[in-house]
């Protein structure tokens, strides 16, 4: 749900990074936090367990500049990937303007990716969001590992609509900003249609 404040000339959008456990959602946000100028970002909030697994969500606010005189803010969230945090994942999708689905490219995680994508579609629907209409970008992460699924197989399994997708190695920052820019573009296009 975008929030346009004409009085303060601000546009606010909520972007959610979704995907199975340990796919690299938090790593994406950590890299963005590291690379963005201090003046353009707020604190990176991580509600995590003692073992640094996401417990509820990570949150990173970005205020990167203006578009047509409107301050443009992106609020980046991750969901907890572990299966038993399903209730939390559903809550975080509330009011999302766009989703980045981060897939783990490792062969043994194919089923986890498929399950997570189905879970995401279900939860979006539960929040009153049409999973076929919300801006969505896919990121195939961990491409540096030796045991990865070929891209065309990942595309068949996860991206039949051929939505924008990116290969990434989030731990090295590869593909992270490309993914963020892509979802930002789709979200802004959607926002423009509505205004």
């Amino acid at each position: 749900m975008s929030f346009i404040n004409y009085a303060a000339r601000e546009i606010n959008c909520k972007l959610v990074y979704y995907g199975p456990g340990l796919c690299g959602k938090t790593t994406n946000l950590q890299h963005i936090y590291k690379r963005v100028d201090p003046g353009a970002k707020g604190k990176l909030i991580s509600l995590a367990t003692e073992t640094e697994r996401t417990l509820f969500f990570d949150f990173l606010p970005l205020e990167l500049g203006t578009i047509r005189g409107f301050k443009t803010r992106f609020h980046l969230y991750t969901v907890p990937g572990q299966i038993f945090y399903e209730a939390s994942r559903k809550l975080i999708l509330k009011g999302a303007d766009g989703v980045v689905f981060v897939a783990d490219s490792q062969i043994e995680r194919v089923e986890a990716n498929i399950q997570s994508l189905a879970d995401m579609r279900q939860h979006l629907g539960d929040q009153g969001i049409d999973p076929d209409k919300i801006p969505l970008v896919l990121q195939y992460n961990k491409r540096d590992l030796p045991n990865v699924t070929p891209i065309d197989e990942l595309q068949k399994a996860l991206n039949p609509r051929n939505l924008p997708w990116f290969e990434a190695v989030a731990s090295q920052g590869i593909g992270v900003f490309e993914t963020l820019k892509a979802i930002a573009k789709v979200v802004m296009q959607e926002l423009q249609k509505k205004t």
Binding site: I4, A7, I67, R68, G69, F70, L180, K181, A184
Partner: peptide, 26 residues
């Protein structure tokens, strides 16, 4: 009513947002 309503000082239309606008943010 941003673009549908009449533009005024308190209701300025955002106008067309291009991919370049988003690129420039980054």
């Amino acid at each position: 009513s941003g673009a549908e309503g009449k533009s005024s000082p308190s209701k300025p239309a955002i106008g067309e947002i291009t991919d370049d606008d988003v690129e420039n943010l980054f």
